[in-house]
Nucleic acid binder design. Sequence first.
DNA 1: GAGGTGACTGCGA
DNA 2: CTCGCAGCCACCT
Length: 111
Amino acid sequence: MEAATFYDQVYQVVRLIPKGRVTSYGAIAAYLGTKGSSRMVGYAMNAAHTASPPVPAQRVVNRNGLLTGKFHFGSPDLMQQLLENEGIKVENDKVVAFKTLFWNPSIELEL
DNA sequence: GAGGTGACTGCGA
DNA sequence: CTCGCAGCCACCT
C-alpha cells in the first residue's frame, strides 16, 4: 500500500544495493522519481538506523563518492570500516574507484 | 497552520 | 582549483 513513506522507499532501494557496491543520493532520488529532491534521500538516511531491518547506509554516498554521512553512524570511522569490510577501499573519507563501484538503481533494477 | 532544518546537487564567480 | 548561492520536499517543533 501507499502507506510506505518516502523513507521506506529509500530504505528498500538501499537494501537492494549489492555487497561491494555503492550509490549516490541523487541516483536513489532519481529512481524514486524525486530527482530534484536528493536532500530527501539523505534526510531519510537520518532515520535509516531506526528502520528494520537496518539499511546499509554506508553504501550510500554523495555524488563525489564522499562519505558525507559518516558522522551519522555514531562514529566517524564506522562507515569507512563497514565499506572496507565489504571490500570497498576508502581513502580520505572518499570511496576509491567510486565510478567503477557505482550502482545505479535506475539501470540495475531496470532489467 | 507556519517556520526551520537538512547524510544533496548543479551552476556561477 | 575553491567558495557560495539557490532549489528541492518531508519531518520536527
